[in-house]
């Protein structure tokens, strides 16, 4: 690290670039918040300075919560994200533990397959999956997305946990084995309780990815009562050419809050997970 030489140079080297990145990163959120608080008279007035609100109002929030199914969408999104994350963590552990700890023929191949599946983007699979979901008669049920989200989350959790598991020392497991514990007991009682930070990282990622998913939800959920927030906002607050901008922004902001709150609590885990993949390897 090179030390700065004076306040001017420090401002140039540090605050100018960091400030620029901060403003660019945060402006859209500021704009969301300001727009959602503007009465329509200010919102659609081209001659007013748009960056501030003169007469803030919660009307758009009230309308959003009373005239649309936004609360129901939020509930759906939470149910889907929590259940899909839970399933993915369990299945992810079942993949990652043997791969991290056991030696058996084919382990390398399985590890590579899991990594490859993690990298398959949804647009490659959505058409056959749509047909499959139809045939299973799961269209317009939350099960459709609860079942399909883990296709991306399981390989992801397995991969992240695999990296974490390898950093956990083996001595305790060895000791438990010598004391006569079965492999399953060793894993459940001794090993998994040591891995809480890994589960938190994987869980937050899986949760954020579930909240973010759009394509499957768009295709599988076409009835308002089963929609998730992203699909509900896009499909029902934009009607034809009519944009309810105030409500749209209120919805976008409220929809972002659960993720932002979880993220703010676990930001260190999140960053650790983000960087573990490429840095620690």
């Amino acid at each position: 690290m090179v030390t700065g030489h004076g306040p001017v140079e420090r401002a140039l080297r540090l605050w100018l670039p960091v400030g620029f990145f901060l403003i660019v990163a945060l402006f859209p959120f500021y704009w969301m918040a300001v727009t959602s608080l503007k009465p329509n008279a200010e919102l659609y007035n081209r001659h007013m300075m748009p960056l501030l609100v003169l007469h803030p109002t919660l009307k758009h929030y009230v309308d959003l919560l009373t005239q649309t199914s936004f609360l129901l969408w939020t509930w759906n999104t939470m149910v889907v994200a929590v259940v899909a994350t839970g399933i993915s963590l369990v299945l992810g552990v079942m993949l990652a533990y043997p791969l991290a700890r056991m030696r058996f023929a084919g382990a390398g191949l399985i590890a590579m397959t899991v990594a490859a599946i993690y990298l398959v983007p949804q647009p490659l699979l959505f058409i056959p999956l749509a047909d499959l979901i139809n045939r299973l008669d799961l269209g317009n049920t939350l099960s459709a997305v609860i079942l399909t989200y883990p296709t991306m989350l399981v390989p992801f959790c397995a991969w992240l946990l695999l990296g974490y598991f390898k950093t956990v020392p083996k001595e305790l497991e060895e000791a438990a084995r010598i004391d006569g514990a079965s492999r399953l007991q060793t894993m459940r009682r001794i090993f998994l309780p040591l891995c809480t930070p890994g589960f938190i990282s994987a869980g937050i990622f899986a949760f954020t990815l579930s909240q973010n998913e759009f394509l499957y939800a768009l295709i599988f959920l076409t009835r308002s009562s089963v929609r998730t927030v992203p699909v509900g906002v896009i499909a029902e607050l934009i009607r034809g050419d009519v944009f309810y901008w105030g409500q749209l922004m209120a919805g976008a902001l409220l929809g972002s809050i659960p993720v932002a709150i979880i993220y703010s609590f676990f930001v260190e885990h999140y960053v650790a997970g983000l960087t573990s993949g490429s840095v620690k390897g």
Partner: peptide
Amino acid sequence: RALLLLPFIVPTVLSTVA
């Protein structure tokens, strides 16, 4: 650092609306 990561965290569809 936490604030800079926000665009990456927030659901894409919602920030795209902004």
